[in-house]
Design a protein around this nucleic acid. Structure first.
Lengths: 236, 236
DNA sequence: AGTTGATTGAAACAACTGTTTGAATCCCTC
DNA sequence: GAGGGATTCAAACAGTTGTTTCAATCAACT
């Protein structure tokens, strides 16, 4: 009784930090896994190791807790995988490869649990109030960067609108593996999944595909290309 | 009192057909819009113009109603937009364009309400029991067809695994507009959306992009190509 | 120590969920 | 027209939901 530490008998939570942060973390995972409606305040509080009343005490509302969770996940993810930066002389095709690699790494993430991405995916699929902010702060700069790389790549030969559509083509290729990963897994043989569907391999494929489409490198089927090295060495 | 017709005062439903079918239709829309958890049996029954007990009477369960709804939506969609078929001599590049056009038409659908697609999208994103069937009956044949077109297109120069990845690149480009349409709409100027983001225009873009990547037609930026006609006339 | 304000806790609240009940009603056959 | 199975209905059920309550506890300052 003398010790100040919480009893260990019923503390399933990492009772280290601020209860507010614990709730935020637990809520993010729960919302990401089950969705807004199916996730219950009680389960979140259980996972966070706090009382049910804590949610309303700290956030006022389930809805406001949700919005805070999305923002929190977003900020966390930006810190984990920041936008790439290059020295001024790095060629555009290598910048494109880096960008795609970065995008896939962030979307498919390897070591880290991708619950933040799952949460954001729900927002992309069916935007709520939390989404507009997400787009403006986070996606628009990324998108603008990609468009500028593409512009450099085919130095001004394509109008802005076409560049945007090409950018969408790139994002779409990456997005599929994140959003429909389970179905992709059903359509592709197991061993192929393991060997070819890693973030790095996919980045190589998407980059080659795009550079070929833009005429920057030879087309995919061309003999000089089959199984040659990808157009850039990735310095990760 | 003599008339057999239901009173018109509280019949918000198209009380034409089988109550079972009415429930199925209402459930599909409700599930598509709000998701499984958020959609309530009461709302579905209200929309269908039947009593709450009818769901359990006809389907036994909310979960079984959901599965039946997904299957129903899928069958309905297959009838609405069937797989394209071609005479034996239609060139591969035109078949590719038709396929992509068909895919986008089914995904983005114009006149018809796309609630069936929304419902299936939920399954793709987070598969339930209803999904495996969906993939086997519906998506795998489509995917195989696409791969075979691609194989014809670059007559055997690419291995099967590469063809599959190219197929994924195509599907991904189309999928983005369906799944993340709202975000796309935030990133692209309004007038560009209206003029360039119709199913037909997008099909042209994706086809050109893919054919260029495969080296079947000149790359996107090439002077001979800017604003030339798309590689195939669409005989829709 | 004593007081004050912030935090936590167990319990209860009202509203809503999916599901069940049993009587009323319909529709068809004899 | 009577009988009988299928269908519909209003009402109630038990369980869960988000939220509130108010007393107990904690931490810090005088």
């Amino acid at each position: 009784m003398g010790t100040v530490r919480q009893s260990t008998v019923s503390a399933p939570a990492p009772a280290g930090e601020d209860p507010r942060d614990r709730i935020l973390a637990a809520a993010g995972q729960e919302f990401a896994e089950r969705g807004y409606e199916a996730a219950t305040v009680r389960d979140i509080c259980l996972a966070a190791g706090v009382n049910v009343a804590a949610v309303n005490y700290y956030f006022g509302d389930k809805k406001r807790l949700y919005i805070e969770s999305v923002k929190h996940a977003h900020e966390l993810r930006v810190k984990q995988v920041p936008l790439p930066e290059w020295p001024g002389d790095r060629p555009a095709d290598e910048r494109l490869h880096d960008f795609i690699d970065n995008l896939l790494e962030r979307m498919l993430g390897f070591g880290q649990p991708p619950w933040q991405v799952r949460l954001m995916l729900r927002e992309v699929l069916q935007p709520t109030d939390a989404c507009r902010e997400l787009v403006e702060d986070y996606m628009r700069p990324h998108f603008a960067l990609l468009v500028s790389i593409l512009d450099d790549l085919c130095d001004g030969r394509l109008p802005e609108s076409e560049l945007r559509r090409v950018a969408m083509s790139i994002i779409g290729q990456c997005f599929l593996y994140r959003a429909a990963g389970d179905v992709v897994g059903m359509l592709v043989p197991q061993r192929e999944l393991e060997s070819l569907h890693t973030p790095a391999r996919l980045a190589d494929h998407v980059t080659r595909f795009t550079l070929a489409a833009l005429g920057v490198s030879p087309p995919m089927g061309s003999p000089a290309f089959s199984s040659s090295r990808p157009p850039t060495r990735t310095p990760r």
